[in-house]
Each structure stands twice: as C-alpha cells, then as structure tokens.
Write a protein that binds this DNA or RNA. Structure first.
Lengths: 336, 336
DNA sequence: GTTTATATCCGAAACGTTTTGGATCGAGAA
DNA sequence: TTCTCGATCCAAAACGTTTCGGATATAAAC
C-alpha cells in the first residue's frame, strides 16, 4: 500500500495523489474524491518512517521516568502518562517511554537525543539539580520539565506551587492557634520536596513560631513509614498539636496511626498533601491540599508539548498551577 | 552528521563508510579504524528513520495498556515496563506506550498497526475474550500477550499458572483441616481472575467441600474493599475458617480487618496472592502465593519480544511460570 | 606474459514520502 | 490570431540509509 500503488491504480502521478491527500488546492475536487475513495478502499496509510525521514520531524515525544520514581508513587505518574499518551495519539504523535537506569542517569537519554528518535522530551520527577535537564539544555534539545529545577537558561516547565500550597496549610493551622506543627516529609531529592519543606519553614518563621528539632521528620514515601513517624511524633506527652504531610502515602499512614490512638477526631490536626489515596481505610474526611486531577495535568502537559513542537518559545511555556486547601474534619482549633 | 559528510571528510564513498560501520569484511582494517575515529570525533549517529525506512524494520515495540488497569494495580505493571524498556533499550529498540481508551478499545492499536509504527505489540492485562488480540491476530501482526486469552490460532504469551497457584493455596488449607474456605476475588474481566476462581472451585470440589453462597466475594480491587469484605465474612458466628485473596490489595485490606478483629493470629487462616504490598501496615508474616519479581518477568518478556522480532515461531513463545506457596504465620490448622 | 584470485573500494538503485519548478490545456482577453 | 492566466497535473530531486553488482589494483598461479 504505497502512494505509488494508489497512483498507478488511478492512473495518476504520485505527486498528485500526495497533494490530494495533503489538502493542496491545485488538485481538482473530482480527483481528490477519487483518491480519497481509493485510499479508503485499499486501507492505505502513509508510511510513517518515510514521512519522518523526508520531513525531518519525528512526531514522537520521549517521556523520561527514572526507575526509582515509578515504584513509589502509586500510579500517580501513570494516570498522567495515560492522559498524555491519549492526547498525543490524537495528533498522531507517539510517546516513547524511557526508563532511565538511575535517578540521574542519562545514558538512554543521550542515545535517543543523538539518534534523533524523538522531537522533544518530557522529563518527569525533576530534581533540584537535574543532570538530565542540564544535558538537554546543553544540546539545545526541546523539553518540558515536570517540576522546576535550577538551570542556566529559561526552559519549559509545568509545576504546582508547592511553596504556596504548604504555606496555606501551615498558615491555616497557625490561624487556628496551633504552635507545634509537625511536618512529615518524603526523603527524596525531587524538587517539590524541598519547595514544600521551605514553604513550611517560612510560614512558621513568619509567624514567629519555633520548629522543634523532632518536628520535621523525613521518611521514605510509604504508608508504613508515615504510620511509624506519626506514632513517634505522638509518643511522648510533649507532642505537636498538628501534623502536615507532604504526600498522600505518608498521610494515609499518619492518619491510620492517629486513628488508632484516637487522635483523629480533632485532638491532633492533620492536613495531607494530595488528600488520602482512594483506597484508604480511613473514613474520616481528612483536610487536604489538593491539586488538579491527573487528567487535567496530563492534558495540560500534552498541550504544552504540542506547542513546544510548534516552536512556541519556552518563555511562554512556564505554567504554575495553584493548589487549594480543602478543609475536612481534621483541622480544628488547637486543643490544650 | 550524515554518512555523506563522514565519507567526504575521509575521501571515501558512502558505501565504504556504511560497510565499515556495519562490520562487513570487504573493508580494510586500516580504513575501518579511520572511519571509527571520524565517527567518534564528530559524534555521528545513524539516522534511525532512514535506516528504518530502508530496512523495513522499525525497531520499536508497542506496549498496550488499557487505561483502567493502570489505575488499580499499584505500579506493578510499571515496574515491569521499566525493566522491559531497559532491556529493549540495550538493543536500540524503542518502547511505545499505547494507552487504549477503554479496556477493550483498539482505536490507537489499529492506527499504529496500519501505520507500521511498531514491529510488534506487547499487550498487557489480557482479557478472557480480548478484541485487541483478535484484531492483531486477524492482521497477522506479531504480539505477545501478558496472560492467556481465547484465540483461534496459537499465539505468543507469557503467564503464571494461576490455576495451580490458587489450588496449592486451597489444597494446603484443606490439608490443615479447613472446610470453610472463603475466596476474595477481584471484579475484573481479566483472564487471571477467572483462572484463579476456577482453580479454587475445582480444589474445593475435588476435596468434596461445598462452597457456601457467601463464601466467594467479588469486590473492586482495593484495600478498602478487601477490608470491608473481610469484615462481612467475619461478621456472623458462622464464619469461614480461612480466607484466600486473589490480589495483594484485597489481601492487605483483609489482613487489616482480621488484625483489628484479633483473628490474624491464626484464628482465621489467610493466604494472599502476591503477598502483602511492601508498605502494608501489617507486620504479621502473612502466607502468600508468590510469583517471580517484576524484574524477572520484565526481562523474560523483553527476551521473548526480541525473539519474536527475530522470527521465532509463536508456538515456541508460550511461557508458563509456576508460582510458589510461601507459608507464613497465617496458615494454621483449623480452630473450631 | 597472461590468467586467476583476492583484497578493497565504489556507483547507483531502492525504501516511500514531500516539494520544487515546471508542463499542459482550455478559455477569455488583447 | 496571439497572449495571458488559471486550473490541473507531473517529473525529478531530496531525505539518509543499505546493498547489489561491478570496478580496480595488486599478488599469486599458470
């Protein structure tokens, strides 16, 4: 099924068939109809590789996911990826999956970059100092970073305002009279972690509140570690009156621990970033900092990727979305 | 950076450069060295699209994941994908992600198939009757099914022996004297679900045991539903003495419920397919049916995919791995 | 000295598109 | 009649490879 065959069976030239299919106006309407009909009859589809070679565009985007991230984030990234894949498929653009061997590895990245196998990259789980982004920028290769990093020149990125999100939560607790607010944060070099950490510290400091040494706990991002950390926090009599967690997994574990201790009724306030996971066993309506759905994020990123391919300057491709504070039953005035 | 440029700067023909790089023996060793050096100096990489066009091979594999599956399986599939991606990258083969719009959708599949954008497909989350596989077989397009399905002609597949796995568990409980063994199974049309269900029924029937109406519970695959289902099972006085769950999410919920009721000490036996998830809050060593690691599975599938591309007949690409019963603290002789 | 073999090399075609720069033809304008 | 113009169409080049079928030169065999 090539252009040549279609052309032959219609008694036309390859040129004309090609131009008919690509909507040029120098082909008679009747001819176009005939071509269209023959294409449908024969099930012809243009050879993507020939077109790519000729056009110098690949119509493919590489999605870079470090291996380690996939394991912990409970499918969050993947729902997004699904959406991105969908949106791109609509424009006949392929999505290549690049699982890098280490959080910072870029062996495969380099290969795809130099082999011209994709038009652009989407880099997930951006680090604060990200060698992958540095490599891409160094090669002037188009990319979109999911999360902000530190780079010499401007670049395209999508991010949530983590700083503001955690501040809204912390400030709300402060307004409720809390002075001992603990932070339960993920142990990871990802950019958003330090942004949330920083936001918390600044909110506390701005309110003139001291952060006690044990009140910031860094743990692996899992339910179990959240559970244990919350238990530790609540162990002594000198416990904090509120806890904020930077991930929903940590939050679910913490909620479970508080629930078992009977503190989830408002005794100890709790705000969970992203809200409890859908299959949490906790039925209490836990207060949360919520971001847009993966669905919405995926669409946004796909849109940005397409605009990047269309040559939109990166300075116009920097999108910061604001999270919202959704108050549930676990944020109450401080109990002394 | 094309062959032409390399050729020109060395005073050689394109043919010779190409043959030097591709290891033909009709090029002098000294020439090969010179070519090699120039390639490294200039950072030349062959244009993948030109090569693909010429060779008629794409060096890409499409991974078909239905959207809905990604959301529930807690990253299991993704760890595998990571491994597959890795293994394929080593052979310079790209992995395309195809997120189908519905469990049975095949719109994108058709597009990639007809557009010759991949050499083969890996289809995840096979259904018992899977229209995607039927479509592929109908087009004589190479694929590997992750899980067995019902198809007219032989096809390549990888699967675990779900039937045997659940039977080992059930039979072990029967040998311990249990007669009321409940099954907690996922609500899904995926092939493995009915295989496990069937295996359980046959084991019970072979032992002459009756399955009471309420003893098989079908629930959505989540911790929460497992939790509730186990609570329901244990509600009355006429409760089963053992529970088997077909997924680890259901198992984690069930374990939590049993633990809260004080039954996890052996009062009620529990065997969980795949074992409890890594971040379970349950510290009891729960008995499990374990399969190979995602790592091992990923490698196996990548290997099979490569063999498929090399033209190995599908009848030689049917791999069934056996699960193992790993006994923990939750399988004890029946307590009456 | 011719023939044959061997070791190197290369021209040109092909893969399936897109696109440039005409070519052809009929109709209306001069 | 001749010229111009618009409407259609097409040949050929190009994208960057791979590979077939020689070409050339040097050495060995007759």
């Amino acid at each position: 099924m090539s252009l040549k065959q279609i052309a032959k069976s219609l008694g036309l030239s390859i040129t004309t068939v090609s131009r008919a299919l690509n909507g040029y106006d120098d082909v008679a309407e009747e001819t176009r109809q005939r071509v269209q009909a023959e294409v449908e009859r024969s099930g012809y589809r243009p050879n993507a590789m020939a077109r790519r070679l000729k056009m110098g565009k690949i119509d493919a985007i590489g999605l870079v996911c470090p291996v380690s991230s996939l394991q912990h984030d409970n499918g969050m990234l993947l729902e997004m990826v699904t959406e991105i894949s969908h949106e791109l498929a609509r424009k006949e653009i392929d999505l290549l999956l690049i699982a890098d061997e280490s959080e910072t590895g870029s062996g495969n990245l380099k290969r795809l970059l130099q082999g011209r196998r994709v038009d652009a990259f989407i880099v997930a789980h951006t680090l604060r100092d990200d060698p992958r982004l540095q490599l891409l920028q160094q090669h002037d290769f188009p990319f979109i970073a999911l999360g902000r990093s530190e780079l010499a020149r401007p670049y395209a990125w999508f991010d949530f305002d983590n700083h503001n999100g955690i501040q809204m939560a912390t400030n709300h607790l402060i307004a409720l009279g809390h002075t001992r607010i603990a932070l339960l944060k993920e142990d990871s070099p990802q950019a958003y972690v330090s942004q949330r950490h920083q936001g918390y510290l600044e909110a506390m400091s701005a309110a003139g509140l001291e952060v006690l040494p044990g009140d910031v706990i860094t743990a692996r991002n899992s339910r179990l570690f959240g559970y244990r950390a919350a238990q530790t926090l609540c162990a002594g009599s000198n416990r904090p009156t509120a806890i904020v967690t930077t991930t929903n997994m940590l939050g679910d574990g913490a909620a479970q621990a508080l629930d078992e201790l009977g503190y989830l009724d408002g005794q100890i306030s709790l705000i969970v970033y992203d809200g409890l996971p859908a299959d949490s066993l906790i039925t209490t309506d836990v207060s949360a900092i919520i971001q847009a759905t993966r669905h919405q994020v995926g669409q946004q990123i796909a849109t940005m990727a397409l605009e990047l391919l269309n040559g939109r300057p990166v300075s116009e491709l920097q999108v910061l979305w604001q999270p919202q504070l959704r108050l549930g039953a676990t944020t109450t005035p401080v109990v002394r």
